[in-house]
Amino acid sequence: MSNRLHHKSALVTGATSNIGRAIALAFAAEGAHVAVSGRSRERGEEVVAAIRAVGGKADFLPSDLDGSAPASRALADEAARALGGRIDILINNAGIYPSPSTPDTDEETFDRIYAVNVKAPFFLTAAVIPAMIEHGGGTVINLGSWIARLGIPIGAVYGSSKGAMESLTRAWAAEFGPQGIRVNAISPGVVRTPNPAETGVHPGDIMMKGTPAGSFGLPDAIAQAAVYLASDEASFVHGTVLDVDGGRTGVAVIAP
């Protein structure tokens, strides 16, 4: 532990599994008090217990971010109370990934993807930032995706929703940077936690063929990038989308 986030408080949405869980654990290990937000109480309390078991500080906040402004405002208020009156770091991680083809995407699915992936973080950020400004500054980190910039033949609506979050990252950096708020994003490649029970080739491995990494990444890789962007080490970083994708969007490896 290097205590890079000592005396900081952080709200991490979608923190009960995968990338969000890894970010919550990494932030707590660096000294932050973490509000672990998600829909599953059982998984959320497991994350909190893991943090507290090694001396960290965390609280679970059940929340279903459905895209409504009241739900986002309620989480912002509850997190501020749980974290002692202030939120220094906001991680907009919660998201859903239905991936039907375009002809098979009905209006209900389209609206739900945008509600959870775009509207919810938009209104949560809007609710959190005024208090950040009042307290002298803060950090917002959004989660984008490699398929926001590299088209693939599935998940068109999901990819466009993540493109919206990367665009909001730059807009918010311009809007709030002069007031002491740093806004950046992380664009993960294929990231998952290996399951020993799985057999055969995982689709993620296929998608990562031809990259320098050659395979999927672990959630911890994204968590360490988030620690950097949230820390004072990134004090000169504004409006950036940090690719942590094994080289997927920028590099092609020619197989021998």
Rank of each mutant, 00 (worst) to 15 (best):
M1L: 12
K8S: 09
A10E: 01
N18F: 03
I19R: 02
A22K: 02
I23K: 01
I23M: 01
A29P: 01
G31Y: 02
G38T: 05
S40K: 11
R41C: 00
E42W: 00
E42S: 08
G44D: 04
G44Q: 04
E46T: 15
V48Q: 01
V48P: 02
V48T: 05
A49I: 11
A53L: 09
G56D: 03
D66R: 06
D66H: 10
S72Q: 05
R73Q: 15
A74R: 13
L75P: 08
E78T: 12
E78I: 00
R86I: 04
A94L: 03
A94N: 02
I96A: 08
I96M: 14
P98N: 07
P98C: 12
S99G: 00
D104T: 08
D106F: 13
I113C: 05
N117G: 06
L124P: 06
L124V: 02
I129R: 05
I129K: 05
P130C: 05
M132A: 02
H135R: 11
G138A: 02
I147N: 14
A148G: 14
I152L: 11
S160Y: 04
K162I: 01
G163I: 03
L168R: 09
E175W: 06
E175N: 10
F176N: 04
G177S: 10
N184T: 07
N184P: 09
P188E: 04
V191N: 08
R192S: 07
N195A: 09
V201R: 09
V201L: 08
P203G: 05
D205R: 10
D205T: 12
I206R: 14
M207K: 13
K209L: 10
T211V: 06
P212C: 11
P212F: 13
F216S: 15
L218S: 10
A223H: 07
Y228K: 13
S231D: 15
S231A: 15
T249H: 09
A252H: 13
